[in-house]
Write a protein that binds this DNA or RNA. Structure first.
Length: 389
DNA sequence: CGTGATGATTTGTG
DNA sequence: CACAAATCATCACG
């Protein structure tokens, strides 16, 4: 009767047969109860029972795979399969819309993942519920049978309890199977999602625009702060980690061969330098070190004083005395503006001081270069004399 | 289909 | 943990 409800659980037939057979006795029960030998028979049965039950008693094995079940439980909980039901299931709707106005493919993939996960969760929960229901049903059924039989044969409450425990044990192993397969499904889904995440989609025009703008206007120190990253992420409709990835890739690739990026650099520098040039030009004339530029330098660390010094040095014809390091971003822009306005004809295939600036410096990251700070006149115009006429 | 561009991941370092 | 560098895997284009 039990196996009929759902074919999937594997209860061994003998386990069930023992109880279904009891109906066979039913029609004789009355006769038996009324039999005059019944008390005697009962006592005999009790006697036999007395001997056998003790031997059975010792087999109260506690299941050792308890730890594994805990592990599965924990994983399911961590994966959000078990635990509180979060949202409506299944629907391909409901995407956590990104703040940017851009169609973000990542969220699409994510929602797909979520949908499938919730599907798994739904199945898991319904199965679990079914199991529990069936378990309690079966338990009460068995208990009723045993109670009924206890009138004809000796059955102590302890035994009933033990029986119930056995049943629960059986069902819990089934549950564990369910949990295990659910875990597997989640793992498969997860790995597939990770693979899918690796599937790359190019950023939107807007995103690359914003990122490149920042990169080339902070070329001497292209390390956006956390805030700046968030800002860029918001503007570009991508995540902060994507911004970080982008800058990591960009830095390494830019450094690797800068000639390839010259055109791009000029484009973006010209784009952002329009306002910066004015400020710089004024700043140059006034030569005021304390003028805080508003546009390009937000909240930056600017720890590379050596770098900035070299930058300024490369423009000695414009800058008579050292200025605050926060002007350097405008310098970066200015570099390219000069390229474009002054020597744009010769720029092709000839990476000028931009290249050499980086080369002379070695890298962005640790721009200590202690030598040039104390002795600025060490190698005066070797690098930049041609560029700054 | 080959190839460079490009986003993401991995590995190693401080 | 942020970053550099190497590497992977896909995209986009001829």
């Amino acid at each position: 009767a039990f196996g009929r409800t759902e074919g999937s659980w594997r209860l061994s037939p003998p386990f069930l047969v023992a109880f279904t057979h009891s109906s066979f006795f039913r029609f004789r029960k009355h006769a038996l109860n009324c039999h005059r030998m019944k008390p005697a028979l009962f006592s005999v049965l009790c006697e036999i029972k007395e001997k056998t039950v003790l031997s059975i008693r010792g087999i109260q094995e506690e299941d050792p795979p308890d730890a594994q079940l805990m592990r599965l439980d924990n994983m399911l909980l961590a994966e959000g399969v078990s635990g509180p039901e979060k949202r409506g299931r299944g629907g391909p709707m409901a995407v956590a819309a990104t703040s940017g106005g851009c169609p973000n493919d990542n969220s699409i993939e994510h929602s797909d993942y979520r949908a499938k996960l919730s599907q798994i969760r739904q199945i898991y929960h319904s199965e679990l519920e079914k199991y529990e229901q069936a378990c309690s049903e079966f338990t009460t059924h068995v208990m009723n049978l045993l109670r009924e039989q206890s009138r004809t044969r000796p059955i102590s409450p302890k035994e009933i309890e033990r029986m119930v425990n056995i049943i629960h044990g059986k069902f819990s192993t089934i549950q564990m199977q369910l949990k295990q397969s659910t875990c597997e499904a989640v793992m498969i889904l997860r790995s597939r999602f990770l693979d899918a995440r690796r599937k790359r989609r190019n950023f939107s025009k807007q995103a690359t625009e914003v990122l490149n703008e920042y990169f080339y206007s902070h070329l001497s120190n292209p390390y956006p702060s956390e805030e700046a990253k968030e800002e860029l992420a918001k503007k570009g409709g991508i995540t902060v980690s994507q911004v970080s990835n982008w800058f990591g890739n960009k830095r390494i690739r830019y450094k690797k061969n800068m000639g390839k990026f010259q055109e791009e650099a000029n484009i973006y520098a010209a784009k952002t330098a329009v306002d910066a040039t004015n400020v710089v030009a004024q700043g140059n004339q006034a030569n005021s070190p304390s003028t805080p530029n508003s546009a390009s330098s937000g909240s930056f660390k600017m720890t590379n004083s050596g770098d900035s010094f070299i930058n300024l040095q490369s423009l000695t014809s414009y800058q008579s005395s050292p200025v605050g390091a926060n002007v350097q971003s405008q310098m970066d822009s200015l570099h390219h503006v000069i390229h474009q306005t002054g020597r744009y004809d010769t720029i092709v295939g000839n990476p000028l001081y931009t290249t050499q600036r980086i080369d002379a410096n070695g890298s962005w990251q640790d721009a200590t270069t202690p030598s040039s700070i104390t002795s600025p006149a060490g190698d005066p115009g070797s690098v930049n004399s041609d560029a700054s006429n």
